[in-house]
Design a protein around this nucleic acid. Structure first.
Length: 649
RNA sequence: GCCGAAGUAGCUCAGAGAUCAGAGCGGCUGCCUUGUAAGCAGCGGGUCGCAAGUUUGAAUCUUGCCUUCGGCUCCA
């Protein structure tokens, strides 16, 4: 007999060789019907695999992330089977599950696949799924596996096999399809009741652009037709939040082919929103001891030769600007740090002066690859809320903590609650490629780890993701479609102080090298605003939104009173506009609801007589009448209490 | 940069070798003088992304380029 420990802590005894499926059946029939896979001592197993030793067991269903992954991994095999039936000679690379669905990289063997074929593949998948084919696991010797795939002519699988150890190789077969696969899989294809091919894209074999490009087919499946419908509805909703669409509708920004790709043009409403974000940050930075600096948009080539950026990025960036002077070359600045280093050097520094914190909203230009440009999230000209802190090594931890506070304050003020912080450290296998002393690195890495823990950040640690010049902490936020974007970043840098020979005089009257901290809580205004638009669906916080109120006169007769109302509100810092179009009130309300204006102030005969406004809140409807000073007070109070609430959090 | 798809009015889209290139929304003008999610009528608005080619004839077919979109690679 073996002992099986269940997640609730209870222990049951079973015959040696019992399968997870049998355990499920012994618990309840319903569970046995819904279970997809089992977690045995932290490993996910097929339900049909016999258990031979005492184990902790968790039965995984569709409600578990691991259950979904298993289902989607099995679905990738099902899609492969369908593709093989429809496209003879198709060859397969890998087909993993994703956060939402799965993909399979395939070589179509000269055939083509287009969105018009999606339905055909979906139908084939469902047809095969209905056969309730069992996913059969088979252990196989390496030699036999090589013979099998050689026979099949699938060179990609042979490549995979080369790197696998004998005795550790399994095949999975369902219906007519056999794949080299570690598993695990769901019991049979019958669990898959709904399938959708989402899109296709090119993907280099093994992610190397020198290799052949395979076709990556993305799909998703569900155990119920209804869930697929819900998922597709969710995708539609997410598309409505796309910052590129809302940016146009809310008149925030645009692009022009003449100006050039990746170079955003800010419209008046967007520019004002930007301006408010800048002021918000400047206020917070002044409070935190930053001092503003300002630098030009170009610099001589020599500056970037000194910083090392020329050598690393020179040929892949915007090419130099020539002058009538022979041999003179200027570059558009791709970052602000070298300029700030020169500001640091403009006067001698004492240990008592540190930390020095130079802040600048610096616009930088980077020649991003053509295919990489994406709305406002990836552009060629953008403005960073940049600052550089020059600190003594013993101040790194403390300053780092303060910067985390600032980043968290910003994310909190804009209602970003779902973010993760990525700690990027050195690759322990390859320490020689990093610049700076081992001791300083250890100090800085520990400082980052400790500060993040101290602040209670949800973190992931990535070894080898550090820049060559220092470790960093990045704040990642998801957009409406679940794509991850890096917003705020904090980086420790040992390289630039070295290259620019930055110094301060210590208490020992000796010269010392400061440590530099780069930080940008927004990351860039462009990307931040893009993610913010998607995050709030265009319903910006009241303090930030372009127009807080729309004053709606009932008829032309009240246009004058409407304008007077707006002017009075303006004196209290409330901003908006008068909708004096010759339209019925119902139409004006509809239009301004669509434009997501937070408050609509309806004014007519009654209101003018009483010197009041009838207030309608976006998405809520009528909230009563206010005198104008009362309403101004109401709206300002709302903003203030929102800030106060967040300050306390 | 690579693979694939798409570009028609300010926006969303129809037209798929031969009516004169269309609709809705938005815009403008007029009528109405409006009370909480679309009042009525009229008018503008387009070298059908750009260039070349095939054809008696091209928005429509071919090729090249540009831009955008979905991915890949890259990302200071």
């Amino acid at each position: 007999m073996i002992k099986i420990t269940l997640p609730d802590g209870s222990v049951r005894e079973y015959e040696k060789g019992t399968t997870s499926m049998q355990v499920a059946q012994s618990i309840s029939e319903g569970l046995a019907r819904n279970v997809l896979a089992a977690k045995i001592n932290e490993q996910v197993w097929d339900l049909s695999r016999p258990i031979h030793a005492d184990s902790a067991l968790t039965l995984l269903t569709w409600n578990d992330t691991l259950g979904k992954e298993t289902m989607w991994h099995s679905s990738a095999h099902l899609m492969a089977e369908a593709l093989e039936a429809l496209y003879p000679g198709v060859k397969f690379w890998v087909g993993p599950p994703l956060e939402n669905g799965f993909y399979y990289d395939v070589d179509l063997n000269g055939q083509t696949l287009s969105p018009a074929d999606f339905e055909k593949i979906e139908q084939k998948m469902l047809e095969l799924a209905r056969q309730n084919n069992v996913y059969v696991r088979k252990e196989i010797s390496k030699t036999d596996a090589i013979v099998y795939f050689k026979d099949k002519g699938d060179e990609y699988k042979l490549d995979l096999l080369e790197r696998l150890e004998d005795g550790n190789i399994t095949l999975y077969t369902q219906g007519n399809f056999t794949d080299l696969c570690r598993g695990p899989h769901i019991p049979n294809t019958g669990f898959i009741k709904a399938a959708k091919i989402l899109n296709i894209a090119g993907a280099y074999w093994k992610g190397d652009e020198k290799n052949k490009m395979l076709t990556r087919v993305y799909g998703i499946t569900f155990p119920k037709e209804k869930e697929l419908k819900e998922y597709l509805t969710m995708l539609e909703e997410a598309k409505k939040r796309d910052h590129r669409k809302l940016g146009r509708e809310l008149e925030l920004f645009t692009f022009s082919e003449k100006v050039g790709m990746g170079l955003p043009l800010w419209l008046p409403k967007g520019a004002m929103l930007r301006e408010r974000l800048i002021q918000f940050m400047q206020k917070a930075q002044l409070k935190a001891g930053y001092v503003p600096v300002a630098t030009p948009h170009i610099a001589q080539k020599e500056l970037y030769v000194c910083s090392g950026h020329y050598e690393k990025y020179g040929k892949d960036s915007f090419q130099p600007i020539k002058t009538p002077q022979e041999g003179e070359e200027f570059f558009l600045k791709p970052m602000n740090c070298p300029h700030h280093c020169e500001i640091y050097k403009s006067s001698p520094k004492s240990y008592k002066d540190l930390p020095v914190r130079y802040a600048e909203f610096g616009t930088v230009y980077r020649y991003e690859q053509h295919g990489e440009l994406h709305g406002l999230t990836r552009v060629r000209g953008f403005t960073q809320d940049d600052a550089h802190l020059f600190v003594r090594p013993d101040q790194v931890k403390d300053e780092f903590c303060k910067v985390i506070d600032l980043v968290m304050m910003v994310l909190n003020a804009l209602d970003f609650n779902d973010y993760t912080a990525q700690i990027s450290l050195r690759d322990p296998e390859n320490l020689s490629k990093y610049i700076g002393s081992d001791e300083n690195w250890r100090l800085a890495e520990q400082a980052i780890i400790d500060s993040a823990a101290e602040k209670g950040l949800r973190t992931v640690t990535e070894l080898g993701e550090a820049a060559f010049y220092g470790p960093k902490l990045d704040f990642m936020v998801k957009d409406a479609l679940g794509r991850k974007w890096q917003l705020g970043t904090i980086q420790v840098d040992y390289n630039l102080p070295e290259r620019f020979e930055l110094e301060y005089t210590g208490s020992d009257n000796q010269k010392h090298r400061p440590v530099m901290i780069h930080r940008a809580p927004f990351g860039s205004l462009e990307r931040f605003i893009a993610v913010l638009i998607e995050h709030c669906g265009g319903n910006f916080p009241l303090w930030l939104t372009p127009d807080q109120v729309a004053v709606l006169p009932i008829s032309e007769k009240y246009n004058e009173y409407a304008q007077k109302t707006l002017n009075l509100l303006g004196e209290s810092g409330v901003r908006g506009f008068v909708d004096d179009r010759n339209e019925k009130i119902g139409k004006k309300i509809r239009d301004n609801e669509i434009k997501k204006i937070p408050f609509m102030l309806v004014v007519g005969e009654k209101e003018e007589a009483e010197a009041k406004v009838a207030v309608r809140a976006h998405g809520k409807g009528d909230i009563g009448t206010f005198t104008i000073p009362d309403f101004a007070h109401y709206i300002n109070e709302l903003i203030e209490s929102d800030f106060n609430r967040k300050d306390k959090e």
